[in-house]
Design a binder for these strands. Structure first.
Length: 584
RNA sequence: GCGCCCGUAGCUCAGUAGGAUAGAGCACGAGAUUCCUAAUCUCGGGGUCGCAGGUUCGAAUCCUGCCGGGCGCGCCA
């Protein structure tokens, strides 16, 4: 049990006692009572708003409840003092031994520290990347890829049974165009002269040429197949080839998704028809005519009756079409079937990670999931804003049409997956992110990856130092766990310990909010605190971590910073970043 | 025109699902290296949290309206 839930339990118990002895009326709802560390550390270790929240329902003044509750809490051995402050807060100071004990918890748990079983093994499906296999992944995809992957790890850490998934959009128009692009490239490779102008509107990437070569190896005569067969062959070849490349690139980023669901397979299987039949049977599908969008009317707008889903019944703004005029399903229709498929596979919690350009699609998908699962499944769509690629402050221009996209592969090869992954998580997912190639490779505190890694490396550096100066001091985790932590009395040390002890709380709240970036901010703050403490040892020799003349004190301090390194490692593990032990 | 996201220090952003005197970094100014990595640290100035109302013990946070920016808006995915 974490120190936070322990103290919360004390507050709850104290409230129960006050109900028992008549100080508080029975039947109060304690749901809004919180117990958390105050923003301002001078207020103490923990604070509770219980008196203010309960004053009105209990029919008494906040101060009176606060005084009584504080008196009750102060009796407890774990709580050194309880003071009423401000409008009715109760500030608690804890027995420092409680905090120190957390160091032992970290050493025992290792990098697994901060994990929990809050999720209770509930199945969560998180779908991310899901880029169309019409080209290689570029840096625009990297953010969603890393975000989804880190969120998955984060949820796994707090006890969810997480499945990572990629939805392959291998049906529809774009794939037809891809197939035709492949055929053009095939003819080109066969010696035919095809002017660039003929590639207008097709996929120009070099990877399509590679795919055509692969097609030649698969079947040297594929170009002479009858038109329909050739097209089908080209589709299959192109998609298979590009998916292999995409998966390779993701693997380079440290991402491996366990499920790849094919849109084409869902369609071929009849899943779309079945899903829509279900909606039909509930009266949620009708044929109607939509109003043209106001303000911006498409030039080729014509009124036509369409097959529509009653999305407005589920909070959407308009009803949404399910069929194209050529009789094919819309992307939305297949997506309904896909989400139903996920639900049927046992996932009541679904997370989709999408790019900013799909933001307008969120409401209808939520409506659809609500309708198709009869409210049984919860969908959370996380939108990742754009990544602005920069170099030394100047924007790097990227245009798919001009063919000068910056691919994930290039960047990972150049600066490494760990840097890319960490930087992508240093902003809230729905805020735009600047990714400056010069800055992220810089070795300074400007660069959060470096700064955090350096803190981790510095801990190891201190250990190397200790091994030199006190060679016979045992420094394995078991020995460190035996250290006499009572020797850690300096305010800087206690502050560091409290920060370390706060890690499970951060993990918990980040997981609940589906916001992995909170870990990045915590890691940065923790690194800063450690660097500051380290420097204090420069001014005051008594605060140095390695004290040649005092083995016991050194052991206690090393236990503390070992715990700190483990917490950093724990965070980096969620991010899929390798902690470094040396930075020379 | 409608919907979603956003508006916090000169700049880039946090702000722990409503808490106490709103925080970091950059930039700017002043300092710290016989010593565990100065790739670091310390101190300082800097704000009507876009504007106006509302909800309540209490609002950057929730509600309404306006202003400003981004994204999207039938048969693309």
């Amino acid at each position: 049990m974490s120190i936070f839930s322990e103290i919360r339990r004390h507050v709850m118990a104290a409230l129960d006692e006050m109900v028992a002895d008549g100080t508080l009326p029975a039947g109060l709802d304690f749901g809004r009572v919180n117990v958390e560390p105050p923003r301002d550390p001078s207020h103490g270790d923990m604070a509770t708003n219980a008196a203010m929240v309960l004053a009105k329902p209990a029919g008494s003044k906040p101060r009176d409840i606060a005084e009584a509750l504080a008196g009750e809490l102060a009796k407890r051995q774990e709580i050194d003092s309880a003071e009423v402050a401000g409008p009715g807060f109760i500030n608690l100071r804890l027995d420092p031994a409680l905090w120190r004990r957390c160091i032992g918890d970290v050493l025992a748990a290792g990098a697994a520290y901060g994990g929990s079983d809050t999720g209770g093994g509930a199945k969560v499906n998180i779908e991310y990347v899901s880029a169309n296999p019409t080209g290689l992944l570029h840096m625009g995809h990297a953010r969603g890829a890393v975000f989804g992957d880190a969120l998955a790890s984060l949820l796994a850490k707090v006890g969810y049974d997480v499945t990572r998934e990629y939805y392959v959009n291998d049906a529809g128009n774009q794939i037809d165009i891809l197939a035709e692009s492949l055929i053009k490239r095939g003819r080109q490779l066969a010696g035919e002269t095809i002017p660039d102008s003929e590639f207008e509107g097709f996929y120009p990437g070099e990877e399509v040429i590679d795919a055509a070569r692969a097609a030649n190896e698969e079947d040297p005569d594929w170009l002479s197949l009858p038109d329909g067969d050739r097209h089908a062959f080209a589709r299959r070849q192109a998609v298979d080839f590009l998916m292999v490349r995409i998966r390779e690139d993701l693997a380079h980023l440290g991402i491996e998704q366990e499920i790849y669901t094919s849109e084409a397979a869902l369609v071929a299987d009849g899943a779309v028809g079945r899903a829509l039949d279900t909606l039909e049977s509930r009266g949620l599908i009708y044929t109607g005519v939509l109003e043209p969008p106001k303000g911006k009317k498409p030039d080729d707008w014509e009124e036509r009756p369409q097959t529509l889903f009653r999305a407005t019944d589920f909070g959407d703004d308009v009803d949404r079409p399910l069929k194209k005029s050529n009789g094919e399903w819309t992307y939305f229709a297949t997506d309904i079937a896909y989400h139903l498929d996920k639900y049927r596979r046992g996932f009541a919690t679904l997370i989709d990670v999408w790019g900013a350009d799909h933001g307008g699609y969120v409401k209808r998908m939520n409506a659809a999931v609500d309708a198709i699962t009869e409210g049984e499944a919860a969908l959370d769509v996380k939108i990742c804003q754009l990544v602005n690629l920069m170099d030394k402050g100047e924007p790097v221009k990227m245009s798919k049409r001009a063919g000068n996209v910056v691919t994930i592969r290039e960047v990972v090869d150049e600066i490494g997956k760990d840097v890319v992954r960490f930087i992508m998580l240093t902003r809230k997912n729905d805020a735009p992110l600047d990714f400056d190639f010069a800055k992220v490779t810089e070795q300074s505190k400007d660069n959060p990856v470096f700064y955090v890694q350096y803190a981790h490396a510095r801990v190891h550096s201190v250990f190397r130092q200790a091994r030199t100066t006190i060679p016979d001091l045992p420094l394995d985790d078991e020995s460190l766990a035996e250290a006499n932590l009572e020797l850690l009395t300096d305010p800087g040390e206690l502050a560091l310990i409290k920060t370390i002890a706060g890690w499970p709380r951060i993990v918990e709240s980040a997981a609940e909010a589906h916001e992995p970036h909170r870990l990045a901010f915590y890691l940065n703050d923790t690194a800063a605190e450690f660097h500051a403490h380290w420097n204090r040892g420069k001014d005051e020799a008594g605060l140095r971590l390695v004290v040649d003349s005092d083995r016991e004190l050194t052991l206690a301090r090393l236990a503390m910073i070992r715990a700190l390194a483990l917490v950093i490692a724990s965070g980096l593990e969620v991010f899929g970043v390798m902690p470094v032990e040396e930075m020379r």
